[in-house]
Amino acid sequence: MPREAASEWQENAAGPVARTHVWRSLWESRELVALLAARDLRVRYKQTALGVVWVLLQPIASVAIFTLVFGRLAGISSQGVPYPLFALVGFVVWTYFSSATVRASDVFISNPDLVTKVSFNRLAAPAAAVLPPLVDLAISMGLVALLLVYYGVVPTWGVVAVPVWLALLVLTALGLALWLAALNVRYRDVQQAVGPSMQTWLFLSPVAYPSTLLSDQGELLYSLNPIAGLLGLARWSLLGTPWPGWPLAVSLGMVAVVLACGLTYFRRAERFFADVI
């Protein structure tokens, strides 16, 4: 029995912020995170006849359209790799980012009872929500591999950096997800805004075109978009396009800012989730 006499007092006091360490609390809830993520996956694929096919359909359709519009008609440069491959990598990365944040944004409001009746580490919910889309990402990577073989593109040693940009990608999604999930509890407008914003953001990001289309200063400004640097990094690592350089550093700085502020805001807001949901 977990009944050690010296177990510490836990306080629930007036005041804005709980005094627990963010990353440690997340680590302690890792089983909950895993179970919540597994639940989402199970629920999603239960009673779907085609399962995986749906995952592949979207990138194939989108890349076909991008290839026609951007590659053929507009003749946009694809940094020396075949355009479909270029667009596919961009789209796969983007799809993860967008579906992870969209899903995570409604983790609380889709289950208000959980917030008002149960005390659990609230961080676990958005953290779990950004994981299941990784499965889609992995499946889509199979498609990327297929296209690499088809076009005879030999990956460079940059491929070893895949785990690095994947981790950064998850953290970026988490940073944004924390904001959206917490804001959504108070303002349901968030839910309405997420979809259209993501649509716009897609075209503001170098998914279908390279960021090198812009002038040097323009590119630096452009890379304030945290996902821009990650797209460059992903293409560098998979397709051997040029190293993104400074703009990557700017993007990563933005990732850090979004994540740090997201965590801070979330920790303050979560104390009152149950009151305002």
Partner: peptide
């Protein structure tokens, strides 16, 4: 610990389990 007090402190020691509703989650 589901909600924070506006004033004052609540302290508990050890694991707290709250059954406010059956079957949430």
């Amino acid at each position: 610990g589901i909600t924070a007090p506006t004033a004052g402190v609540s302290r508990t020691r050890g694991r707290v389990a709250a059954l406010l509703e059956v079957g949430t989650g």
